[in-house]
Amino acid sequence: MYDLTAVRRRYFKVKLSNGRVIDLEPPKLKTLNRLVHVAKGGQEPEELDETFELFSRLLSKNKQHYRICAAQVEEWFDWDEMIGILTEFFGWLNQEKRDPN
């Protein structure tokens, strides 16, 4: 039997501009799928709103239970910061996926 409770949790550390450090958990598959779908699309206003919502979900799924809503994402982050976090996070996910331990 495969025991899901025995799966080792992995976290990606992010230091926010307010100095708070959060440990992000890997996203649920539904959120990951939507992020990939939005990333393949253009940058229409509706898609940007969905991007902000998905980014807030990604940031809010953390060990500290610190919540960040889409409105805070729009206010706190600039484009380069959001893309930087997403790029590093997905790089980390790829690396973790390859690590058998």
Results as ranks from 00 to 15, higher is better:
Gly84Asn: 13
Lys30Arg: 14
Lys28Cys: 08
Asp23Met: 06
Val14Glu: 03
Val36Ala: 15
Trp92Arg: 00
Val73Ala: 00
Asp3Leu: 11
Glu96Asp: 11
Asp78Asn: 15
Gly42Glu: 08
Glu75Thr: 13
Gly84Gln: 11
Val14Phe: 06
Met1Thr: 10
Val38Met: 12
Ala70Ile: 10
Leu32Val: 04
Leu59Gln: 03
Ala6Pro: 00
Asp3Ala: 13
Pro26Gly: 06
Phe89Asp: 01
Arg34Ala: 14
Phe89Gln: 04
Thr31Asn: 13
Arg57Ser: 01
Pro45Cys: 07
Glu46Leu: 01
Ala70Tyr: 07
Lys28Ser: 13
Leu35Met: 15
Leu16Val: 08
Glu46Trp: 02
Asn94Glu: 12
Asp78Trp: 10
Glu75Ile: 09
Lys15Ser: 09
Arg9Lys: 14
Ile85Trp: 02
Arg20Val: 05
Tyr66Asn: 13
Ser56Met: 05
Pro26Val: 03
Val73Met: 03
Glu74Lys: 15
Met1Asn: 10
Tyr2Leu: 11
Gly42Arg: 06
Leu4Cys: 09
Leu48Val: 11
Glu47Thr: 00
Glu25Thr: 05
Phe77Gln: 01
Tyr11Ile: 07
Leu29Arg: 06
Asp3Glu: 10
Glu88Leu: 06
Asn101Lys: 13
Leu59Thr: 05
Val36Phe: 15
Lys40Cys: 00
Glu53Lys: 05
Asp49Thr: 07
Asn62His: 07
Thr87Gly: 01
Val7Arg: 14
Gly84Ile: 04
Val14Gln: 03
Ser60Asn: 10
Lys15Glu: 14
Cys69Gly: 14
Gln95Val: 07
His65Glu: 15
Asp49Gly: 03
Asp3Pro: 05
Phe55Ala: 03
Asp99Arg: 09
Lys63Phe: 00
Arg20Glu: 14
Arg10Met: 02
Phe77Lys: 03
Glu75Arg: 15
Lys40Glu: 08
Gly19Ala: 09
Glu88Cys: 05
